[in-house]
Design a protein around this nucleic acid. Structure first.
Length: 356
DNA sequence: TAATCGTGGCA
DNA sequence: TTGCCAAGATT
């Protein structure tokens, strides 16, 4: 294992130097301010950089600091998060801001363990904040780092195996630079290398600073490492939407429960059962024969294939809303301030455009 | 602990 | 169209 010793002593110095020369430097969230780093890390979970570039500036402009975020309404936070996905991140972000204000005196803790107490902040995110903002010698372990490590050491473990996951953490820790001052560049380098060189498809090994010590490259196995995760079963789900408009053109929305898909967002009344949908309609004084069936919308999630069928109707001036359906009539011009599921947002836009 | 949670990009 | 996954965390 002589090669591994060389690898461990060479990796950090090479990565730090490479990051400074060839890494990414213009990203908006590359700062040492914990609030901004934290916000970016949450937004970037399972989300591509290009997507976050759309959301981050608006979010910071609206909530410039953790106090402003803590004082906000949850709906205002979800409204800015609309379309970004994984909405529990937004709800946890809001809670965590209140934790920072109420439990940490408005100041982010500097240690990884303390940061992990914040809602929505796991080990890797906590390590990123600690490393970027406080030079802490803590390692991140995201998809980029896992891929780099699996190739560097030719590790072909099962990604779903917990022992293998633990081995990756241990391996990553053993590679940390000696000098704590290098932690920001090192941490950024881990992500940059994985994102721009050691890519999942078509890695650019020719320009990789590790290509002479990377076992997968030396063995010609970069295409097969890391091992693929077991495919998740995609279930077909039928979803029926009750799209009600009053005479003023407002649409009826209800706030979804925190658990489950689109948790906390605002949506039209809906059900996976058509009979349930008819019952919901009757709560508004509308019979099944008064509903107009729309065109099916296909919406694919990671683990669900949704087939959404909208039913529309015009509700009376004084729609007798049942007490069991809490909600609001929202005028088209006010939709923007509500967090709305992507397919509903698209649907309402399409309907609106077809009317004018 | 394995399942759950969104949306978009790419091949 | 489909598979796979992206700066993962939670339950």
């Amino acid at each position: 294992m002589r090669n591994e010793e060389v690898l461990k002593s060479e990796f950090a110095p090479r990565l730090v130097q490479w990051q400074r020369q060839h890494g990414r430097h213009g990203l908006l969230w590359q700062t040492r301010e914990p609030y901004r780093v934290w916000l970016s890390e949450i937004m970037l979970q399972q989300t591509q950089v290009a997507t976050v570039l759309d959301y981050y500036p608006r979010f910071v402009a609206t909530f410039p600091d953790v106090q402003a975020l803590a004082a906000a309404e949850e709906d205002a936070v979800l409204g800015l998060w609309q379309g970004l996905g994984y909405y529990s991140r937004a709800r946890n972000l809001h809670k965590a801001a209140q934790q920072v204000v109420n439990e940490f005196g408005g100041v982010f803790p500097s240690e990884r363990i303390e940061l992990e107490r914040l809602c929505g902040v796991g080990r890797s995110t906590a390590a990123a904040i600690a490393a970027f903002c406080f030079n802490a010698r803590e390692t991140i372990l995201d998809g980029n780092v896992k891929r780099v490590l699996c190739r560097l050491f030719a590790l072909d473990g099962d990604p779903a195996n917990k022992a293998f996951e633990a081995k990756l953490w241990t391996t990553a820790e053993a590679l940390l630079p000696r000098n704590a001052a290098d932690m920001p560049a090192y941490t950024q380098g881990l992500m940059d290398l994985g994102a721009t060189v050691c890519k999942r498809l078509k890695p650019v090994c020719a320009v990789c600073p590790m290509n002479d010590i990377c076992l997968a490259h030396l063995q010609g196995r970069t295409a097969e490492l890391p091992r693929r995760k077991a495919a998740v079963a995609v279930k077909d789900v039928a979803l029926y939407w009750l799209v009600l408009r009053n005479r003023a053109g407002a649409v009826f929305l209800t706030k979804r429960p925190a658990k489950g898909i689109w948790g906390g967002l605002w949506c039209v009344p809906c059900s996976e059962s058509l009979d349930d949908l008819y019952a919901l309609a009757r709560d508004f004084g509308i019979q099944a024969e008064d509903l107009t069936e729309g065109i099916e919308i296909k919406h694919r999630l990671t683990h669900r294939q949704l087939m959404i069928l909208p039913f529309t109707a015009v509700a009376g001036e004084q729609a007798p809303v049942s007490a069991r359906i809490a909600g609001e009539w929202v005028a088209p011009e006010n939709l923007a301030i509500y967090g709305i599921p992507k397919p509903l947002h698209s649907y309402l836009n399409a309907v609106q455009n077809s009317l004018f």
